[in-house]
């Protein structure tokens, strides 16, 4: 049914929107660069001024590419968590991945490196990423160990929430004993940022996204079967514990690395899967996984453009924009299309 309909959406409209928005994203910014020059710079052409070239190649392109990978990665993680936990409110961070990252960064910024001053920001960029990865990695390992021990995923969800509360409490204590300046630096990290990534960092994100995506295509069958129930999945010959482990591994890789480089970016991972389900009117992960990835990328590109406030010198925190833009859109769609319950649950 409607086979062609979804194929057109999937293979034509979404990629087309990504390409257009990507070019638009690169064309906009605090410094106005004429569109033909933007194009010629992307094509590797000569003639444009060095500073424009610098802006496009070293700032706007990595940022737009980061937007793509962040949108896609977080959205896929969200989809996986919603399916695994059978909960429409689940997102990439329910297992405490962002809390772990926050703790790592808080330890770094509030208790350690800040001694050297905020001025060393380029140096701290990598340190922050390492601290965040360590933090989320530790939480991840704990969750994975638990996932192999517990019978059902609901227990895992609660344990993830507990990890989140624990790390949150430690961060609060750290903040309490920190100076205002230190807290401000930490706060800036929690706002999230797509800019400030260099090419090698973007490359790392893409390698991880690729790994996560390929893992996901292997997970289509278990994810679909989990829509029925864990018992049904088992009766269909699937190793539920192994599938659960791989789903968590993939989510942790994606959400963990993105959080490490860009901070905890909220909302996308929760909202995009719902938007995509409404858009494609399906629960089949074979369609949903690529569709969610592309929709996430599109939404992130748009959010980034809005956050730039084109024509002005200001940049708004991306984390605020994702929710500010996304929430009304989701509410509007739900009201227009009726209950989300129908598309999510039985």
């Amino acid at each position: 049914m409607n086979n062609n309909n979804y194929k057109i959406k999937l293979l034509l409209w979404l990629p087309l929107a990504i390409v257009l928005l990507f070019i638009l994203n690169i064309s906009l910014g605090s410094i106005t660069i004429p569109f033909p020059d933007v194009l010629s710079i992307i094509m590797g052409g000569e003639g444009a001024s060095e500073s424009w070239k610098n802006i496009i190649i070293n700032f706007r392109l990595p940022k737009a590419l980061a937007a793509l990978v962040v949108g896609a990665g977080l959205s896929i993680s969200g989809l996986q968590m919603q399916t695994l936990f059978r909960n429409p409110l689940a997102g990439p961070f329910v297992l405490g991945i962002s809390s772990g990252a926050s703790l790592g960064v808080a330890l770094l910024l509030l208790a350690g490196v800040s001694v050297y001053g905020v001025g060393l920001f380029n140096f701290t960029n990598w340190l922050v990423a390492i601290a965040a990865s360590t933090g989320s990695g530790l939480v991840l390992i704990l969750v994975m160990i638990v996932s192999l021990r517990v019978r059902d995923s609901m227990t895992l969800l609660i344990i993830g929430l507990m990890f989140g509360s624990l790390t949150g409490a430690v961060v609060s204590i750290l903040q309490y004993f920190s100076t205002g300046e230190e807290v401000q630096v930490y706060l800036f990290w929690t706002f999230g940022s797509l800019g400030g990534l260099n090419w090698s960092e973007v490359l790392i994100l893409y390698i991880i996204l690729l790994a996560g995506l390929s893992l996901n295509f292997v997970l289509i069958k278990p994810l679909n079967a989990l829509l029925l129930s864990e018992n049904y999945a088992k009766s269909l010959g699937l190793n539920v514990k192994q599938a659960r482990f791989l789903i968590i591994l993939s989510t942790s890789l994606l959400a963990g690395s993105i959080t490490a480089f860009c901070g905890p970016i909220a909302f996308i991972g929760l909202a995009v899967p719902h938007l995509t389900r409404l858009l494609f009117n399906t629960s089949d992960h074979k369609i949903l996984i690529p569709a969610v990835a592309m929709t996430g990328a599109i939404i992130m590109l748009v959010c980034d453009m809005v956050a730039q406030l084109p024509g002005s010198d200001m940049i708004l925190p991306i984390n605020a924009i994702t929710s500010l833009l996304g929430a009304p859109v989701v509410i509007w769609i739900i009201l227009r299309r009726g209950s989300m319950k129908n598309t999510f649950a039985g």
Binding site: S235, N281, T282, F344
Partner: peptide, 14 residues
């Protein structure tokens, strides 16, 4: 062995 269980299924949109 195939089964029909009493588990609530979560596949409303299929």
């Amino acid at each position: 062995v195939s089964v029909v269980l009493t588990d609530k299924i979560n596949a409303g949109n299929m």
